[in-house]
């Protein structure tokens, strides 16, 4: 799915991302997933700090689809593999660039914090 025409092609223009959007993009970085799997992975990865409800999850996915960050996968699971009603989502190339830009931004912030010895024991 191509990014919407109104979007800037520059991923930097999309920053900063909200924690939820960043976490959803991150969970899709290593492959396509369905909604519940994304929710579980985000909760595990953030040690329970980011716990999304179904409304938050699907509202975000809906907007990310429209913004072109993610795309719906053509793949449908077979009946014995998983629930075939589930939709799978994958990262688009634009979404990947946005994720990379956000990760780089966060890394720069962490690097700055390190240089100021924020993490040093007091």
């Amino acid at each position: 799915m191509k990014p919407a025409a109104t979007l800037s092609p520059d991923p930097e223009a999309e920053l900063p991302l909200t924690p939820t959007v960043f976490n959803i993009l991150l969970s899709l970085a290593d492959g396509e997933k369905h909604g519940y799997a994304i929710m579980q992975e985000v909760e595990e990865a953030t040690e329970g700090r980011t716990r999304m409800g179904p409304g938050t999850l699907y509202g975000s996915l809906d907007r990310m689809l429209k913004a072109g960050y993610i795309a719906e996968s053509d793949r449908r699971p077979t009946a014995n593999e998983d629930d075939e009603r589930r939709r799978y989502y994958r990262l688009s190339s634009f979404g990947r660039r946005v994720l990379q830009a956000e990760a780089a931004r966060l890394a720069r912030a962490v690097g700055l914090a390190r240089s100021k010895k924020i993490f040093a024991p007091t």
């Binding site: 369905h34 909604g35 519940y36 929710m39 179904p54 409304g55 999850l57 699907y58 009603r85 589930r86």
Partner: peptide, 18 residues
């Protein structure tokens, strides 16, 4: 309570997660 279009698209999956 959600808009009909949103519900039609995601109701099944939201219910499943619930």
């Amino acid at each position: 309570l959600y808009p009909a279009a949103f519900r039609q698209r995601y109701e099944g999956e939201m219910l499943q997660i619930f």
